[in-house]
């Protein structure tokens, strides 16, 4: 199987996933449609899986070397993580969001076929690349939402009352998001060992990823220790997201990042 059939596969998978998300939301009103959601989700997954296996066979190597192939794996794993999270925590939007992200990544491969054979720079050609990126995408999405939830609690609190449910939602988001941050950090360290000879180099990007992780760690402990300290905890959570944004976008502009090994500019 080659890339020429990919637009068809894309249409099948994203079509089924779209219907799956619709069924999930409909199941609020008609519980029986939930069974359909599972069916549609897995049909979409099977189509994509067959394509990946076929491509693997025709290339005679694992499809992990080019940008297009990388996107294929995002499109494969993000739905699985979203599905698992939905099953465990009944968070519908996480499923919807992961499927949407997957469709966007796969869609780029359809709209811009050039990326199929754009090989990555040598340092990025690693089995660690895909898992490392995926867990961070997923963690960042959940933590972004947790920041919104924190602001909501603070806003409601200002008006005199907030819903206990919102607070629990924030906690769950952080627990899930933080566990993925940990995975990302550890995967990154293991990759660093393969690529640069050591698992931790105190590179600015690593430092800021660590700082981000620590602030969420503080949130978890403040909440576990003193559930009554709602307000400080929510401020911590909102602040944590600011640190996360610095880590994501801002690092390249800091003076400390002058010789970061993590900036892959094309020069």
């Amino acid at each position: 199987m080659t890339w020429s059939v990919f637009p068809t596969v894309f249409a099948i998978s994203s079509g089924f996933w779209g219907v799956a998300v619709a069924s999930v939301y409909l199941s609020r009103f008609r519980p029986r449609t939930e069974a359909l959601a599972h069916l549609f989700f897995w049909t979409g997954m099977v189509a994509l899986t067959l394509f990946i296996l076929g491509l693997w066979g025709s290339l005679d190597r694992p499809p992990m070397r080019t940008l297009g192939e990388t996107r294929l794996w995002y499109g494969f794993f993000l739905p699985l993580i979203g599905y698992l999270t939905w099953q465990r925590w009944q968070l519908r939007w996480v499923l919807a969001f992961s499927l949407l992200m997957a469709v966007v990544f796969l869609g780029v491969n359809v709209l811009n076929p050039d990326v199929h054979d754009r090989a990555l720079v040598p340092a990025l050609q690693s089995v660690w690349f895909v898992p490392h990126v995926i867990v961070y995408i997923f963690a960042y999405a959940l933590l972004a939402v947790s920041a919104i939830v924190a602001v909501k609690v603070l806003y409601e609190g200002r008006k005199g009352r907030f819903r206990q449910k919102t607070l629990i939602l924030a906690d769950n988001m952080v627990y899930i998001g933080f566990s993925f941050l940990t995975l990302g950090l550890v995967f990154g360290a293991m990759w660093g060992k393969e690529a640069w000879g050591h698992y931790w180099n105190w590179d600015p990007k690593e430092v800021w990823a660590l700082l981000t992780w620590i602030v969420y760690l503080a949130y978890i402990h403040i909440r576990a220790h003193r559930p009554d300290l709602v307000r400080p905890a929510m401020w911590t959570l909102a602040f944590a997201f600011v640190v996360l944004l610095i880590c994501w976008f801002g690092v390249n502009y800091l003076p400390s990042a002058q010789d970061s090994i993590h900036t892959y500019s094309t020069s």
């Binding site: 609690v153 603070l154 409601e156 609190g157 200002r158 005199g160 009352r161 907030f162 819903r163 206990q164 449910k165 607070l167 629990i168 559930p227 009554d228 300290l229 709602v230 307000r231 400080p232 929510m234």
Partner: peptide, 20 residues
Amino acid sequence: PEDVERQNAVGKDAAKEPEL
């Protein structure tokens, strides 16, 4: 925590909310 809605003041002094 019980999944119930409660009136909760997140006042300046959250410490005064011991029932949580």
